[in-house]
Simulated scan of single mutants.
Amino acid sequence: MATGTNRQILLVETPKGKLSPQNFSLSEGAIPSPKDGEILVRVKLISLDAANRAWMQGATYRSAVESGTVMAGGSISEVVESKAPGFATGDLVFADTGWQEYAAIPAKAADKVPAMEPMSHLLSVYGIAGLTAYHGLLDVGKPKPGDTVVVSAAAGSVGSIVGQIAKLKGCTVIGIAGGDDKCALLKSELGFDHAINYKTEAVGKALRAAAPKGIDVYFDNVGGDILEACLFNMNNYGRIACCGAVSQYDGAPPAHGPRGIPGLIVVKRLTMQGFILTDFNDKREEALADLQSWVAAGKIKVREDILSGLENTPAALIGLLAGENIGKRMVKVS
């Protein structure tokens, strides 16, 4: 039985506007004891995702995070005590442990993962980010060789992998990102054909220049005005994979949504589909095998942004929402 204190980050107040450090507090409690059917885990790496912010607004594909509770979040954790068959001390798992050092969770809510170096790849290219990129692009976007694929938040955890997979599939790839440094990295390191800095360029005009024949697949991570710009440049029978809407998660709601959607979808016969990763659980092993082979061959370069210290998790999420990160952002806890 583990003894000592368990540091936790609580969501003390549901944010009314932009997320701030004042919405969180650092608390200490006792390390929990697992019940029958549970495992006690020590959190190693916490995954930071834009969806963390959306969970504070209300129920999504999971229940909302209530004020006064441990902030929700997925992690790679190590089993320190097991009261469930199939799990032993030292096993690594992925689970929604929340932002804390220890958690007692139902074994059925934990997925065992293999030990590997670097461990961080279990959250990036072989975790939520890589699998979301893989399935969202290939199973929803359905790119064909010669297609033009546009990716928003292209320097982020998901977008950076989407673009590289699209290149592997023989597509012309255009990334939209915030900042000249990110745009330069997309082209020089990750192999994108074009990059658009939405902070300094008119996105619609830049898209027409980079994709004069139009867009076949748009992988949407942001929603809002960038989604609107891409809609107006889609080709007939284009596909839009709706992964997220980070532009609308933090702060005041937008003054208007993307305009022209109903008419454009009809006239251009577009397919616009939202998805979440669990839609593709039956294809997980196939996806992992492909991702592992591409990384081993140097065809996918993995970018990660790792911060240290549980106490820095709120600031790390606020920074992610502001676009500070390149690649997958996570916090090393132990």
Rank of each mutant, 00 (worst) to 15 (best):
L227D: 01
V149W: 04
G327K: 06
S160I: 03
L11E: 04
V222C: 03
V12P: 11
P32W: 03
I165Y: 07
S124R: 03
E28Q: 14
S120Q: 14
P314T: 01
A289T: 15
V79R: 01
K199A: 03
N23Q: 01
D96W: 13
A103S: 12
G130K: 02
I161V: 15
Q8E: 15
S247V: 02
G257C: 09
P253L: 04
I161C: 06
N197A: 03
F219L: 06
T148I: 07
M56R: 05
Q292L: 04
A229Q: 06
C242Y: 14
P258V: 04
G274H: 08
A287G: 10
V302N: 02
T97N: 11
V149A: 08
L270W: 08
C171A: 13
N235L: 08
V12R: 14
V173H: 07
W294N: 09
L19S: 07
V151I: 13
I300Y: 02
H256T: 13
Q164G: 07
R269Y: 00
L227E: 03
S47V: 04
A209G: 05
E285A: 15
T200C: 05
A202F: 00
N325A: 08
V173M: 04
D282P: 00
V79Y: 01
H194R: 14
G4T: 07
A209S: 15
A103H: 07
Q8S: 13
K169A: 11
V203C: 05
Y134W: 14
T132I: 06
V217M: 04
I165A: 04
G251V: 10
G159F: 02
K83I: 06
Q164T: 10
G224M: 00
L40C: 04
G29W: 11
A95R: 00
K16I: 12
V222T: 10
G244W: 04
G86A: 02
V333L: 04
A316Q: 06
M56I: 09
F232M: 11
Q164V: 04
K187E: 13
S33I: 13
K205V: 15
Q8T: 12
R329F: 00
E311L: 09
G136L: 03
E38T: 09
D49A: 04
P34F: 02
R42T: 00
A64Q: 15
L190V: 06
L185G: 08
L190R: 05
I174D: 00
A30V: 13
A245G: 09
R239F: 07
A287T: 03
S157D: 09
A115E: 14
G224A: 09
A2C: 12
D36R: 14
A322E: 15
L270M: 08
A95E: 00
M1A: 14
P212R: 12
I76T: 05
G319R: 06
S33Q: 15
G4H: 11
